[in-house]
Nucleic acid binder design. Structure first.
Lengths: 178, 178
DNA sequence: CGCATATCTTTCACGGGTAAAACACTCGCG
DNA sequence: CGCGAGTGTTTTACCCGTGAAAGATATGCG
C-alpha cells in the first residue's frame, strides 16, 4: 500500500494513527478524532518522560523532585508545603514525602513560621540552588535535541496550540467536575 | 500590561507560560523554548487524565485497564500477555496484575497455547466486549467536549503536529538511549 | 539424549502516589 | 478564658507500577 515511510521530510507513521485505524475498522460509526489529540498527548508525555528525564536521573533526581526544587528556584522565595503542592500540581502528602528526602539530602531547608506555628517555610540550600542551576541548562539542551525532529516552525505552532488548549483546560476543568 | 484575558476568541493565559516567564526572569540566558512544548504536553496529559477518565470511573475501570481491554477489542483477536504489554506500553508485571483483576471480574478469559505451554492467550468475554463497546462512545463524546475549547481547525493542526512529533519520537527514542 | 541457553509469564520487594484520618495550631465568639 | 470550627501539615493504609529474580517451558547443539 504505502511505502513504509511516507516522504522525504518524512511524516513517519505514529502508533496512535495505527490504533485509530483499528478502532475505525471495528466501529466505523464513531468519531475517533479526539483520540488523535488525546491519545497522542498521552503517548508523547509517556515517551518524553522516559527519555527526557535522563539528565535528571544522572543527578539522582526524579522529575517530581526536580519540579519541587524548580518551583523554589524560579519563584525566588520561600514557599510553604501547600504552595509547593499547588505549584507542582500534586498532593500535600506527596510534597511532605519529597521534602523529607530532599531535606535529608541537604537540598532544601525548612523553618517554622514565627507567627503561625502550623506553617513551614521551605527554601533551597546553596547546594540545592547550585544543583538546579547546574541541571537546568543540560535539561533544556537535552529537551531541545529530543524535539529537534520537528522543524522550528512546527515547534512554534505546536507550542501555541498546546498553550491554547491548556489555557482552556485550566480555565474550564474546575467547572467540568463530572 | 496585558488585559487579564487576551482577546475575544481569548487565548487564556496558561500556567506553563507563567512558569516559563519566571524562569526567564531568573536565567535570561537560557533557551526555554522546549518547556513551552514539553511542559505543556505534560500538564495537558495530567489534566486530561484527571478529567477525561470520568466516564471510565463510572464503569469501575482505570485507564490502564481500559487500554488493555481496548487493545483486545480493536485488534479483534486474542493477544498474549507480552503482546498486551507492548500494545499498552507497560511492563509485563503490570499486565499480569491487570489480567488477574479483569479475569476475576469476568471481562477477559485466558487459555493456554496447545503447542507452547509458556504462552497464554487472552481474549475478551462477551461481558468485556459489551463493556468496551458501551463505554467507548461515551468516552469519545466526553473527550470531544473536553477538547471543544479549541476550534476545529486548531484541533486538526494540533493532531497533525502531535502526530509528526510522536512519529519522530517513536522512531528515534530506541536509538537515543542516553 | 541431555544440558545450556533463550523465551514467556509470574512473583517479589520496593518506591512513590493518593485519600482520609490524625495532629497541631489559630482564631473568633460566648 | 475556653471551646468549637477552620486551616496547614503529617501520618496511615493502601493501590499500582516497576525491575529483577524466579519459575516453567521450549529449543538447539554436542
Amino acid at each position: 500500500m504505502t511505502a513504509t515511510n511516507g516522504g522525504p521530510t518524512g511524516t513517519r507513521r505514529d502508533t496512535v494513527a495505527a490504533v485509530v485505524r483499528q478502532w475505525q475498522a471495528v466501529h466505523p460509526d464513531l468519531d475517533t478524532a479526539p483520540m488523535e489529540i488525546i491519545g497522542r498527548i498521552n503517548r508523547c508525555a509517556a515517551l518524553l518522560q522516559q527519555a527526557e528525564d535522563a539528565p535528571l536521573r544522572r543527578a539522582g533526581l526524579s522529575r517530581p523532585e526536580f519540579d519541587l526544587l524548580g518551583a523554589l528556584r524560579r519563584t525566588g522565595h520561600e514557599l510553604t508545603p501547600s504552595e509547593l503542592a499547588r505549584e507542582t500540581f500534586s498532593s500535600g502528602a506527596a510534597v511532605t514525602k519529597r521534602l523529607k528526602q530532599l531535606t535529608e539530602r541537604g537540598l532544601v531547608e525548612r523553618r517554622g513560621d514565627t507567627r503561625d506555628r502550623r506553617v513551614a517555610h521551605v527554601r533551597l540550600t546553596d547546594a540545592g540552588r547550585d544543583l538546579v542551576d547546574g541541571i537546568l541548562p543540560e535539561q533544556l539542551a537535552y529537551e531541545t535535541t529530543v524535539l529537534s525532529g520537528l522543524d522550528p516552525q512546527g515547534q512554534g505552532e505546536l507550542a501555541v496550540l498546546l498553550g491554547a488548549l491548556l489555557g482552556q483546560l485550566e480555565g474550564r476543568l474546575g467547572a467540568l467536575r463530572g
